[in-house]
Amino acid sequence: MALNRTDVEKIAHLARLQIDESSVPEYATNLSNILDLISQMQSIDTSDVEPLAHPLDAVQRLRADNITENNQREHLQTVAPSVESGLFLVPKVIE
């Protein structure tokens, strides 16, 4: 499975990753090699096999609907890149 420049750029966009123009060929080669490695799976017939999402046969625990978190805004926003009036700021979003 060989990925070309367009594929790499499309994936990078979907993942919101800026990739240097110059390193695209290297990504294309490496990703293609990885996909070749991965393609080994295709030789196995798994048509009757139930996918395994989780190693343990466990079920979801439920949490009681009680408020356990109080306002920690100042504390939690100390690590924020840009904050004003309690809001996280990002470049203007145009809808």
Partner: peptide, 22 residues
């Protein structure tokens, strides 16, 4: 988004994110 993630992540992380995204 793109520059934050492009500059903030190293090559191997970006590679795996791309494989997973694909």
């Amino acid at each position: 988004y793109k520059r934050t993630r492009g500059e903030g992540f190293g090559t191997e992380v970006k590679r795996r994110i791309m494989v997973g995204t694909y």
